[in-house]
Simulated scan of single mutants.
Amino acid sequence: MNANEVAGLTGLSVRTLHHYDAIGLLCPRRNPENGYREYSEENLDRLQQILFFRECGFPLSVIRELLENPEFDREQAFQVQKAYLVHERRRIDTMLDTLLKTHKTWKGEITMTPKEKFEGFDFSKNPYEEEARRRWGDETVQKSSSTLSALGKEEQEKIARQMENIFCTLAQCRQLPPDSPEVLEKVGEFYHFLNDNFGHHYSPEAFTGLGQMYVDDPRFTENIDQYGEGLSAFLAQAMKHYADTLN
């Protein structure tokens, strides 16, 4: 199948499929005559795994790490994915019940307790992502976590403030073209900041993938866009442009 056919089958955009190829997540063979991507049955099976993990809230960078790990086991992955989706179904059912109760409260039919008003909301870390990391490892995340954990509280807070300042500065630039010299200079500072402080060296490809994760993962999008509407999408473009200058 070609990219257009896979896009029609899955509902993904062709651009997304091309991005998966660019970051090494899903790399179909190329037709030697025209260079077009050709997706095999094996590619479709891998894509299904990618989409299951994505629906379970996993960032693309973590999904790639999991699928490339030699110890990855599809049966174990099935158990993790099933557990998450069952958990999510129950959470959504609870939130729907909370919403209906809230509606009745507005109409004066019932009175909710403070605890009942927030049943179903869960902003904790994805426990199934943590389980997957324990099973198959995630070298990048482990290195970053270990590096930050080794720092004192004051140093951790300093890095957090620096990160916030970087996002605030980039937010002020988001009306400029993402490939403008001013933007590339600021994104370059961000690139070196990450590589200097998180115990992991981001290659240009990984830096591009990180930027794309800012728009693919709603959790990152929500967090980053608090510094300025549309900042996550702007960063995804700017980070790719900067990475291209490094190749």
Rank of each mutant, 00 (worst) to 15 (best):
I159M: 07
L170T: 09
T98Q: 06
S40I: 02
E189P: 03
T245C: 04
Y242E: 01
S232F: 08
D21Y: 08
S144I: 07
I23Y: 04
Q48G: 10
K117R: 14
R89K: 15
W106G: 03
A7M: 06
R46G: 00
L51M: 15
L176M: 13
G230R: 04
S40L: 02
E164N: 14
F123R: 06
Q156I: 07
E42M: 05
E41P: 01
L12V: 07
Y84G: 00
R134P: 00
T10R: 03
H241I: 01
F52M: 14
C56P: 11
D216G: 12
E116C: 03
D73F: 00
Y20T: 04
V183T: 07
L176P: 04
H200F: 15
R90Y: 00
L210D: 03
Y128I: 02
E119M: 02
I63G: 07
S232P: 11
H18K: 10
Q81N: 08
K107W: 06
N223L: 15
S40T: 13
L210S: 09
E229C: 06
E116G: 03
E155L: 01
L60R: 05
P178D: 10
G8V: 03
V183M: 06
N126M: 11
G199Y: 09
K115Y: 08
L12N: 06
D93T: 08
R135Y: 10
K117N: 04
R133P: 00
T113G: 12
T102R: 12
E75C: 05
S40Y: 04
L17R: 02
N195I: 11
E139W: 08
K125R: 13
K240Y: 01
L231V: 10
S145P: 00
H241P: 00
N223G: 05
L26F: 12
K117F: 03
E185S: 14
Y36W: 07
N2S: 09
P218C: 10
A7V: 02
E88M: 09
T98E: 01
V14C: 01
A206W: 10
C27I: 15
E164R: 14
F52I: 10
